[in-house]
Design a protein around this nucleic acid. Sequence first.
DNA 1: TGTCTGACAGATATTGAAATCTGTCAGCGA
DNA 2: TCGCTGACAGATTTCAATATCTGTCAGACA
Lengths: 197, 197
Amino acid sequence: MNEAVVLTPERILEATEDVLRRFGLSKATVVDVARALDVSHGSVYRHFPSKASLRDAVAKRWLDRANEPLCRIAAGSGPAPERLEKWLRTAFSIKQKKVCDDPEMFATYLALAQDAREVVEAYKDKQVDLIAKILSDGVAQGVFEIDNVKATARAVFDATVRYHHPAHAEEWAKPECPSRIDALIALLLRGVRVCKP
Amino acid sequence: MNEAVVLTPERILEATEDVLRRFGLSKATVVDVARALDVSHGSVYRHFPSKASLRDAVAKRWLDRANEPLCRIAAGSGPAPERLEKWLRTAFSIKQKKVCDDPEMFATYLALAQDAREVVEAYKDKQVDLIAKILSDGVAQGVFEIDNVKATARAVFDATVRYHHPAHAEEWAKPECPSRIDALIALLLRGVRVCKP
DNA sequence: TGTCTGACAGATATTGAAATCTGTCAGCGA
DNA sequence: TCGCTGACAGATTTCAATATCTGTCAGACA
């Protein structure tokens, strides 16, 4: 008897991601996923209550993977301003890379993000927490001066939607984009810095 | 003979706006517009070379009308920080009002904005110029300290996409929205203000 | 003369019937 | 017993035939 043929949520997610990448969000069916795993589609429903939950689980995995480098930056040490800048630039370039390398998954993410699904909300909240971590480090280091760290973290996140929300993805390739990002980051850094350090 | 029956671009735009409001962007046809004016649809093409140009012209009118209060604020006098805040809040509330009062036109605008059409680009550039005007007033007043006014104006515009880009319109009604706007505006104002005034 | 009409070709949208999909569940086989 | 299957009902999607629309233009009409 072969252990590998046991149907696990993990294997289903793997197969779903493949199918999604191959056919795209609009064409991928749970029948396709079942076929890829060589089981009946009823079996898939034994592990995920609906197609939507399956899609959300795949998106969560994908988002968590994308989030990892950002967690490391936020958890790290060093001067907060540099870390905030690094964090933002990394966030932007991860998204930019994804949209090139993995367009089908990105389309899935876009569809997810457009209805304000739970997974995406949770992911955003996590991002805001990471920013808040860096901001409060900065306050502790005496380089940032912030009334309400949580609200300001949210404001920094909101101020940068243009460069991480998939709805604006077509703009990311434009040639004037880098200098606009520079100006935005400079403005935000000035907004949190203590006066005359 | 009746002067009112002369077919002018203005009358066509008026009728198109009506038809758009009545049927929505996806259903409105230039045949409908012609019918509303009681002329053949060929006549409409005598004044506008294509349906797209007609749609763009309507959008331009609509945007120009929406922009008027913002022009007045930018052209006004008084302390720049207050004016910048007023400008931003007005920009947000105009959009918010439009999305409630005139959802069909707003959908049209959304469709326009999604392909990055010329009209919308021009409108955005105009908005950035207005912000730049207020910023340079602030510099002149000695309350703002800004390296590159034009780039910073663009950054302020970019930082506020979430509250003026139609792609985010569904978020505007959420209860936490006002306090997030407050935090964002505070952050941006701090980003342009001189240190220790 | 200059504006408008209406018929036209090709493109696009609508429609309804057929196919496929989602989600459920009784029962099979290990 | 437990996970899997496959048939099923209702929802959704596909597809091709049909209808409508866009954009043009020769000619009517004032």
